[in-house]
Nucleic acid binder design. Sequence first.
DNA 1: CTGAAAGCGCTTACAG
DNA 2: CTGAAAGCGCTTACAG
Lengths: 340, 340
Amino acid sequence: MKTAKTVASLKTVASLAGVSIATVSRVLNGDPVVKDETRLAVQRAIKTSGYHPNRVAQRLRSTNRSKKLIGLLIPDIQNPFYVDVIRGIEEYAYANGSAVVIGNFSQDPKREKLYIDILRSESVDGFIVAPSHGKDQDVEELINDGHAVVCIDRGLSNLNVDVVKSDNEKGAFNAVAHLIKLGHKRIAHITGDPAIPTTQERIAGYIAAHKHYGIRVDQKIIKGKESNFISGVEITKQLLALPDRPTAIFTANNLLTLGALETILQQELKIPEEIAIVGFDDVYWATSLNPPLTAVRQHGFEIGQRAIELLYQRIQQPDRLPANVIVKTELMIRRSCGFK
Amino acid sequence: MKTAKTVASLKTVASLAGVSIATVSRVLNGDPVVKDETRLAVQRAIKTSGYHPNRVAQRLRSTNRSKKLIGLLIPDIQNPFYVDVIRGIEEYAYANGSAVVIGNFSQDPKREKLYIDILRSESVDGFIVAPSHGKDQDVEELINDGHAVVCIDRGLSNLNVDVVKSDNEKGAFNAVAHLIKLGHKRIAHITGDPAIPTTQERIAGYIAAHKHYGIRVDQKIIKGKESNFISGVEITKQLLALPDRPTAIFTANNLLTLGALETILQQELKIPEEIAIVGFDDVYWATSLNPPLTAVRQHGFEIGQRAIELLYQRIQQPDRLPANVIVKTELMIRRSCGFK
DNA sequence: CTGAAAGCGCTTACAG
DNA sequence: CTGAAAGCGCTTACAG
């Protein structure tokens, strides 16, 4: 029961069908040159032997054909945005009989490097990566070595590469404009890690909205350190302790939003009457919050799909010019922003 | 720039160092038999050539040694519980230089089958699976064919297999007991898909708590269809429309909880005064809810770690008796259960 | 239309 | 201590 059965190989099938392994391979690969009679015999042998091709051998052998395996480097699998991206990629891969190897590097560049090495030596067809920062040398090296790479969420500053990402500036603009139109004049912005390009784009949108509506920007209420929950908690505390406390907060991602929400709750402030909030990143639990959260929705699933499409194009046409795909965001207006 | 550099192989290194590929392989594998001088020359050649072993060739060749690759079959990557499990598994794999291939089958048995086939033909060392249902034939076949398999969250009814899961019955018992101690006497239970073993165990805990405290069980307020959000919404609506409406709801997983929460919010009922709620599955946003949610925490990360430990044991010792690891749950008491 | 043979990049007995 | 050779399961020119 527990001893591994020997698995059927080309050889098994070949001897069963009374042909050579080359012929079996041809049938498997749909080579039209094979005689019908032979093909049938082989197909029968495949059935009865329960043969499944060995993808490892196929990958080792084949040089030009697709290996049906793509590598994914994700900064944080706990972030629902990336989960949507993964689903988009997987959906497409699944339809192609491709498998996806996910390396979740938890924002750790060392771990990112290890996964790059592993995936490289697994001979994947290509990579979809959210680089840990703007000048990610490991990803650059990958590209310079001739691998097909598509970046998501953020590009590379030194290299022209395929990128798929959200319209961050516009998304931030719309969120802040929404607050302004509701009468808010003193709006804080809790930013993500300043080293990430996305952070800068969202700040730009925040500022642009102020300019557009003729409202003064106060740099003292634009604050950010890291992109995580703790940072959201700390900065919210600082903001709420200010003598001229803001009437609204715009948070730059879902983790920061959560930190802000928890802090507001603890101080027993009413949303939106005492403090309004709008967050970047919509999440599936936003409508179950009390009050439901107004948020900028990123279409992660679409971002994933565009990314893998671009990747397959890049594989087939290594020299085409890099594309820059911007996926629209959408402001989901719910009840966390009203003004007294 | 875009033309793939030829990658260094054993051959490259061997000729650079002036030795045979066998010797290079020995150095790479730490064979102590190699002369120091030779070893150094080879190591130098490895450095200068930028050699990285080809894992595909290694996997094809080696029969008894670890392939450093494990397969993961996850029913729903959107469920934060599984994300925790994945992280636990990955942490361990990372420390071992192993990679993890994730197949997210979205509760679709067909897709599960495809991923099993793919992973099998990738010659993974073993599988960690949450079977789509109690009698999952594809997983059974995998085991019968001699593959190392560990199940998480639920076992297989026809086969004795390694299983790691939460103490579902006790977790449910504690949640319901908590409500009863707060004075609730009419507690509804929104269950998951009745076909999943987990669902039955949680129902058992719910009933046991009632028995233990001498409270009558009303089958009419134990309801469930699927394990998703929509099901949570629908059943909550039915429960709230009842003439003798329950004073509390115990939801069997995080998606159902979310559905219940949204419905309660829409009907503008106050939690916990008008309706109390306790959910199975703690989530990282539970403390940002208003009021913060009382929930049964499953230790997904530990479940993942136990599972991969068991898997490696199973690989080394294919004949040891199947283990059944139960990981404790923990009731996180917050503010959603108080009674008037 | 089909088969024999080379080779992808490794590991591992077997000689020496 | 080291090398030549076989072989893992495939694919693909090359003959015939």
